[in-house]
Every structure is written in structure tokens, then in C-alpha cells.
Design a protein around this nucleic acid. Structure first.
Lengths: 227, 227
DNA sequence: GACAAAACAGGACAACCGGTCTGTTTATAA
DNA sequence: TTATAAACAGACCGGTTGTCCTGTTTTGTC
């Protein structure tokens, strides 16, 4: 057969950073939507427009790729969604409420719930591999630490004297994680507002029993298309 | 080569129910420890001592097996761990506290955290398949419903007038789910007690700030062997 | 005992997976 | 330019996966 014309003579352009970013983008999205084990490298390569050689050059193994997603993307997502807003808020309590409301609003207009990026990967990978677990546990730790530190700052300003920083942080993170878990499974983001309201009920006035069910909104979200 | 003696002439004994139970036992354990996608039917067959033909006879596909695990085992676990104890408790609040403490105590003596059976599968499967999600969402719903019903029973007895049943139930389930998620990732069950204490802090006396950190126990759990 | 259906055995198979390998092209520095 | 390493291409491979298929054995029923 006739020798093929060596492809298009169009020159190749090396862009290691861009290629790496493209792979991470695709891997992050697929790991969140389908999970780690259900995402094949072949699919990722096709979606990112990357060959096997290039992928292997940047990420020698699938585990290395997932570790990079956790350390660079999941960590950044928690930092951006939770840590920075809480630090910038007027108080720890206001910060937590703000994040709950912001995420709830985002989910309501998005129309579907992908779940919490950290918890999604944590459930699938934390028991499977020690390196995965260490990376994921570190993000959880930083998350809780940021909230606890904010409580301590409040206390130094004379507020929240009866609040235990560690416990408050644990409760905030756990409630959010669990609410997102339920929201993802039921595809109903209303549980986020339910949890937020229930959290604030203890410190609020006694008006919670009157008309409590009136302003509670509940909405089923439309089916999303994965990935 | 010499013709093999057709195995041991020991008669075979059909035991469809027993075999099905064995497969479900192994599948439940493996799905919890390794996850659905990471569990191969070959491993399950070997662990259960079952041939491919027998497995296929009872569960035509892997999905059918997982669905059976969810509907028969995960559902029963939630019923046993949460619904029945809450219904038997003196009040919804006592019931929730009792379950938190019972699970915390169990984890502390077990030495490792496998996580919540429902949440473990929910995270991996709820976005992957509509049937999975429906089954898992139903369990979440029954869970919340049982707690909310208990609050309503309390209210008919003149208690918890300021508590919204739905919100209280959502908060309890979310906090537990999230706490178990964190405990699984960090392999530290202390977060369960942190969350429980924080939940009850709102209704407790002001003694929480004094010596709050003294009696809080925190322990790292030893590595577990999966499966 | 005869018969049918359920229960089980065990091999076969095609598709797919992750990783490796060799070779070529591009960028960098001397 | 030339040497050198990084960046990328693309085929290849051994192993595994879930499922299917044919055949045999057991069980229940008349």
C-alpha cells in the first residue's frame, strides 16, 4: 500500500501546562460525575483530546492522576466554597449560613445535584488506598480547622463564649456533607435549607413553630446529564 | 491423560435460599469495603464458594445483585440501626442521641470505620443509574420519615412544640451521614461525639464552655483490613 | 417411575482496562 | 548549529471484566 503522507504537515505545538490542565479538567468532571473506578483512561483521553503517550507523560498512573485531582482541584474547591467565605464573613455562624445559602441557591438554579466534590471522592477512595485517604483527610482537617479558627476569633471579640470551636466546626462540616449527600441521592436541594433552618432553630426565637412549614420550599430537580 | 473421576461422587444438595444468602452476605461486605465497581463478580464467586452458573441463576446481572443488596441489606441496616431504636425511644431527641452514642461506642471498640452502609453506596451509585438512585432515595426517605413521625408523636404528647419535624429529621440524618463520612475518611470516630455534643449544646446549660475540651476524647483508630 | 422445572456446573468469549514500549517531534541551552 | 531533554504520538499487550451458553444434576409433582 502507498505510504501515507505522514499526517497533516501542520506543526505540533507543545503546551505541557495547557495539556495538563485539560486532562485535570476532564478527570475532575468525570470522577465527580461517574466516580473514579467508573472512569476509564480511554474515555478521559478521548474527552481531553490527548493521546496515551501524553497522558502517561504527565500522569504515570491513574492513581497519580486522581491524587492530582484531589490535591489540586478538590482542595481548591473546598478552599473557594468554604474556607475563604467563612474567613471573610463577619462571624463563624454567619459564614456557615452564607455558604449553605449560596450553595442551596446555586443548586436550585443549576437544576441538579452533583454532590460535594470532597465527599464524592472520599467515600469511594478513602478505604481503597492509604495515599488517597491521607490526602482526603487532610482536606477535611483544613476545612474544620478554618471554621474552628473563625469561632476562636469570634471568642476573642467577646462573642460565642458558650460555643466549643471544634464541636461547632464538626457539626457544620458534618451537616453540610450529609445534606449534600441526601440532596445528591434524592436530587432535591431542599434538604440543605431544612438543615440550615434546623441548625439555627436552637438559637432563634420561639417563632419557629408558628408557620414553620409555610415558607419551606421543596422542589424536585430535573434530571441532569452526567459529564 | 487419564480420565478424571468425575469429581467426588458426593451428591450435590440444592440450597437456593442458603446460596442466595451467602452471595448477598459476600456482596454486601465487598460493596461496603471496596465499593460496587471495585468488586468483581469473580471475587464474589470465590468468596462465596459459588460458581458462575449459580450466581447468574439467582442474579442475572451485577446490577440486579447490587439492587438486591440495597433493597434487602442496606434497607434492613437502616431499619435496625436507626428506625427501630428511634421508634422505641422515649422521645425523638433521646432516640437520636441513643443511636449516635451506640454507633460511636461500636466504632470505638471495632477499631475502624467502614462508614454508613447507605451513604457508601449512595455516593457511588446514585448518579450512575436511575434504579439505584430510586432505591437509595427511598431508604433515605423512610429514615427521615421515621424520625419526623417520632417528633410528631412527641408533639401530640405536649413536647417539642417549637421543633419542626421535617427539619429536625433532616438535621439528624444529615449530621449523622456527614459525621460518618468524616469518621470513615479520617478513621477517627471522635467526630461522632463532637457532632452529638454540638447538637445538644443549644438546648443544654451554659456549662458547655467550662471544661468543654477536657472530657472530649479523641482517638485515632488502627488500620482495618478491608473485607 | 416419568416428567418438567428449578438449581447448579463450568467453560467460552468479546470487550475493555491500565500500563508499557518504541519512536518521533518540539523546545531549550550551549 | 548541535546536543540534550522534555513533550507527545500511537501501537501493543497481558490480564480482567461481566455476561452468555450448553450441559448436568437435583427437586417437586403427577
Amino acid at each position: 500500500m502507498i505510504a501515507r503522507l505522514k499526517m497533516r504537515p501542520g506543526k505540533r505545538t507543545n503546551d505541557p501546562d495547557g495539556l495538563r490542565k485539560r486532562v485535570l479538567d476532564v478527570a475532575e468532571a468525570s470522577f465527580q460525575a461517574r466516580g473514579y473506578h467508573a472512569s476509564s483512561l480511554g474515555d478521559l483521553m478521548a474527552a481531553a483530546g490527548v493521546t496515551g503517550g501524553a497522558l502517561h507523560h504527565h500522569f504515570p498512573t491513574k492513581k497519580a492522576l486522581a491524587l492530582a485531582v484531589i490535591e489540586e482541584r478538590v482542595s481548591a474547591a473546598v478552599e473557594e466554597t468554604w474556607i475563604a467565605p467563612v474567613q471573610a464573613a463577619g462571624s463563624a455562624r454567619e459564614g456557615v449560613r452564607g455558604v449553605f445559602e449560596a450553595v442551596a441557591a446555586e443548586l436550585e438554579q443549576q437544576g441538579f445535584v452533583r454532590g460535594c466534590p470532597l465527599n464524592n471522592l472520599a467515600h469511594e477512595l478513602s478505604l481503597a488506598d492509604a495515599d488517597f485517604r491521607a490526602a482526603l483527610a487532610g482536606i477535611f482537617s483544613a476545612w474544620r480547622q478554618a471554621i474552628a479558627d473563625k469561632v476562636r476569633a469570634d471568642q476573642q471579640a467577646g462573642r460565642e463564649q458558650d460555643t466549643d470551636p471544634q464541636r461547632f466546626a464538626a457539626l457544620a462540616v458534618a451537616t453540610y456533607s450529609g445534606a449534600m449527600s441526601m440532596a445528591k441521592t434524592t436530587q432535591d436541594s431542599g434538604v440543605l435549607r431544612d438543615c440550615l433552618n434546623a441548625l439555627e432553630q436552637g438559637a432563634s426565637s420561639v417563632s419557629s413553630s408558628k408557620g414553620a412549614g409555610a415558607n419551606r420550599r421543596r422542589r424536585m430537580l430535573r434530571q441532569h446529564k452526567a459529564f
